[in-house]
Every structure is written in structure tokens, then in C-alpha cells.
Design a protein around this nucleic acid. Sequence first.
DNA 1: TATTATTATTACTAATATGGTAGTTTTAAT
DNA 2: ATTAAAACTACCATATTAGTAATAATAATA
Lengths: 138, 138
Amino acid sequence: MRLSTRARYGTRFMLELALNFDQGNIFLKDIAKKEEISEKYLSQLVIPLKASGLISSSRGAHGGYRLAKSLSQITLKDIIQVLEGNLSLVECVKNPSVCSRVSKCVTRDIWEKLDETISGVLSSVTLEDLVNLQNKAN
Amino acid sequence: MRLSTRARYGTRFMLELALNFDQGNIFLKDIAKKEEISEKYLSQLVIPLKASGLISSSRGAHGGYRLAKSLSQITLKDIIQVLEGNLSLVECVKNPSVCSRVSKCVTRDIWEKLDETISGVLSSVTLEDLVNLQNKAN
DNA sequence: TATTATTATTACTAATATGGTAGTTTTAAT
DNA sequence: ATTAAAACTACCATATTAGTAATAATAATA
Ligand code: FES
Ligand code: FES
């Protein structure tokens, strides 16, 4: 029950974009250095983030990445969902066909409740919140 | 971010023990059959459950497993903690030494909050609750 | 227009975790 | 002694995770 490095690194990438929201395009290279994340690995994570419309990019010199929405419109749930694929702790909660026991399985009801709780927390935290936390810390 | 089969199978094993709390020792073999779980695999999961004091066992003929505490004293958190080792979604929350960035990392605060929320839900559900849910369903 | 700096794409790989199976030994009741 | 169960030990196949490497496409600019 671990959050993948994809989700964690991706969140930190998004936070860096948020902290530099008014600076135009930011180089992936710079974020990788600042956050101590492998540049090549990070460049994989950015693909689904772009495909989902959370960020946009420009190629070539003076290229880079930027948020495609305002800080308050991007939640942790958005980011993690894109990078982990499916937020559910247990496959059969969102995809009942994988379990033959769905109708008689009490534990499934609990996993479902847990999923909803986690989603609730993640969707309540926006990039704006993270930026505010960061600023308060400094 | 998936709950392991260890945790899920183990929970179902514990639920079966709970449903038969007054029947004395229950054979692992019978639970494995009823819950459609590999007998050999399940026999690995009971080792930590026994070591943690949640269940006890008897060998030999007329042996088997039984809960070592009352239904209301065993929570899902107890069970999953034993089978997953560490409930934390992110290693550095409970073990700060693994991350060099702990002091300046805002995301860690969020992961910590999320951990607490999950623990809260899991420790609020006892085997007694599961048994009641099961009985209501039938 | 050649150069340069960036993102984009593709392919591979090492390490670890997961989800098992198989066989043997110990124990306790009959 | 026999039998039926848990306990222990060892192994294994597969999937996932985390990462590297090389190359192509693109866009600014000198
Ligand atoms: S865990 Fe899927 S139905 Fe029980
Ligand atoms: S994730 Fe461990 S300190 Fe940021």
C-alpha cells in the first residue's frame, strides 16, 4: 500500500511548476536538479501529465513546461490519478468483474468506503494549498 | 497504491474465524476452500497473524486456528498492519531518515495527513462490525 | 541556414515485490 | 502406530518499479 514514486515525483514536479507559475516556461532539467530527481525518469512522468491537460509544453530553445490551469483548479487527486491510473486500493471496487465474490463479500464494502475517504482528502488539496504551505514554511 | 492480497486474504481469513468464533478451532483448509484462497499461500499469512497475538493455533488432529481476542478488540488496522508491515503510504513519513528532503518537503505533510486519515478509518472497523454487516446482508 | 537547446519517442534493463507452489517436519489426538 | 493437522524451509514465475540510453523532432537565434 505504497504511493508510487511516479505519483510522488510527479506531485513535486507539479508543485515546482506551481511555485513558478508566473515565470513562463520552466525547464524540466531545472526542476529535476532542484528536486533531485532523475531527469530521464521525470521526462517519462510528464507525458501523461501533458496528455491529461494538466500541463502544456513548448519544444526547442526557450521551451519548457507550464501549468495549463490555475493553481486552485488542480488537485492532488487529479495529479495522482493521472500517474497511478486508478486510485482504488482494491481492484474490484471500481471493476467488479474481476472478483467472483462481489455479491457476498463484506470486506469490499469497507475497501470502498476507504477509497472514498482517500479520494476526499486528495481532492481537497489543491496546488494553491501546497504553495501556501510552502510559503508559510519559509 | 494497492492493498496487497496478503492484507485482503488475511482479512477474509480473520472474518471467517470471527463468524465461527464459538466453534472452537477452525481448520485453515476449510477456510481456504470456503474463501477460494490457496491453502499453501494462506498458511504463510497466518504466521505473522499468530506471531502478533491476534490468533492462536493448535497442531495435530483436532487442531486449527481461533481468534485470540474478542471480536470487538480486533480492528482492520491491527490485521493489515501485521500483514503489510507498515501502513504508511510513503516511507519517509514514519522513517524520516530515508529522505534527505524531509525538512523542506511540503508534500510530506500531506502524505502524513493522508496516512492518519486511513489509519482512522481502519481502526474504526472491528471484526464485530464486519460480522454484523455480514449478518445483515443475509 | 547552421547551431543549439529543449521536448518527444522508443527501447532496453536491473532490482524488487508479489503471489504463489512443493516438500518436509513437528505435533497431538485416536 | 496412524492420521490429520499446523509449522517450517526452500524455491519460483511474473509483474511492477525505477531507471538508463539513444535518437528524433522542434523551435529560437546567431
Ligand atoms: S475483494 Fe473483491 S469481492 Fe471481495
Ligand atoms: S517525500 Fe520524503 S521528504 Fe518529501
